[in-house]
Amino acid sequence: MMRGTNASTPVWLIAWTGLVTLFIVGPLVCVALVSLTPLDYISFPQHSVSLRWYKAILDKPELLGASFNSLVLALFATAGAVALGLPAAMATARQAYPGKQLIIGTLMSPLFLPHILSALAILSAYSAWGWSHQPSRILAAHIALTIPYVLRTLIASLSGLDVRQELAARNLGASHWQVFWRIILPQIRPGLLAAAIFAFIVSFDDVGLSIFLTGAGYSTLPVQLFSYASYNSDPSVAAISVAMVIISFIAVLLVERYFGLEKLIR
């Protein structure tokens, strides 16, 4: 927990911190301001503010549909990545098995490979298999995309556990399943939550991979936004961006409220 700056904090550090903060928050503020302009083009509001560009979002059914798709996709991708990543992380953090480095390297590879490369490989694999159902195609790709984040967070979380706790529980009569539910799971819950949030955000935000896998029938919000912004330059793009930030923020707040992020991470 950070305690207030103490008297000896050097001035240059304060200045540097301010600059970095400005660098991160500044563009957001600009976008937020632009979204409130009453004018027809991208500009800062001068004399008055208006919510007309937020209202304009509601008039674009393709964006609303894509938002729904993105939300559902991100939820399922998160569930899939956690369901597959948790067992992999447990095996990796707690024991040695043949080919461990290779398997982990493979699972982590979406992190290092350029998205365009992954996308082309996935696309050609899909067409070779004749897999054409768009939502499930993109879901599978997103699970692969988000697994590295889940894996990394959970391995870190699990390696903090003392293996002797598991031995102690077994010595007291717990089955492997009970060891998992009563000893391991309660202790990695913060890590699990962080992993799920990472996975959700990565999936919800992705353009690079999704742009190759979406099409006429099915699209996601970032892809729609990207193509809309490529051809239009009205402030509704800014309004949608702000809406997305607000949605993410609400998600984090809800998690904080119902799971107590702060308390769990302690």
Partner: peptide
């Protein structure tokens, strides 16, 4: 657990 041999661990391994 069936052996009736209870263990106290180094660093205790409390939950």
């Amino acid at each position: 657990h069936r052996r009736g041999a209870a263990m106290v661990f180094q660093s205790y391994a409390l939950f």
